[in-house]
Amino acid sequence: SRHTFEINGERWTVEGVSEELKEILRAAERASNDEAERLLRLALKLI
């Protein structure tokens, strides 16, 4: 499935992501810059 999210003013669209990964991306959208970066690094390990 496709998911579009915005982090630090940048929009991203990813396809074929699991519900778990979507949850991480949604958390990154709400997080501070440092926390968002940490969550994105974690998410990339899952891809």
Rank of each mutant, 00 (worst) to 15 (best):
S1R: 11
S1E: 14
S1I: 14
S1C: 15
R2N: 10
R2M: 09
H3M: 14
H3P: 04
H3V: 14
T4I: 12
T4C: 15
F5R: 01
F5D: 01
E6L: 15
E6Q: 07
E6Y: 15
E6N: 07
I7H: 02
N8T: 03
G9C: 09
G9I: 02
E10A: 08
R11K: 14
R11F: 15
R11Q: 13
R11C: 15
W12C: 05
T13P: 02
T13Y: 10
V14N: 01
E15M: 10
E15T: 12
E15C: 15
E15I: 15
G16F: 12
G16Y: 13
V17H: 05
V17M: 07
V17L: 10
V17C: 14
S18C: 15
S18Q: 04
S18W: 08
E19T: 08
E19Y: 07
E20L: 08
L21S: 03
L21I: 15
L21A: 13
L21V: 15
K22V: 15
K22C: 15
E23S: 12
E23Y: 09
E23I: 10
I24D: 00
I24K: 02
R26A: 12
R26P: 00
R26Y: 11
A27H: 08
A27N: 09
A27R: 14
A27P: 00
A28M: 07
E29N: 04
E29W: 03
E29A: 09
R30N: 12
R30C: 11
A31N: 03
A31F: 03
A31D: 02
S32L: 08
S32M: 08
N33S: 15
N33E: 14
N33I: 12
D34P: 13
D34R: 09
A36F: 06
E37V: 12
E37I: 13
E37D: 11
E37R: 12
R38E: 08
R38G: 04
R38F: 09
R38S: 07
R38W: 10
R38K: 09
L39V: 02
R41W: 10
R41I: 10
L42Q: 06
L42N: 03
L42K: 07
A43K: 01
A43M: 05
L44I: 12
K45W: 13
K45P: 03
K45H: 10
K45R: 13
K45V: 10
K45T: 12
L46K: 06
I47C: 13
I47N: 02
I47H: 05
I47V: 06
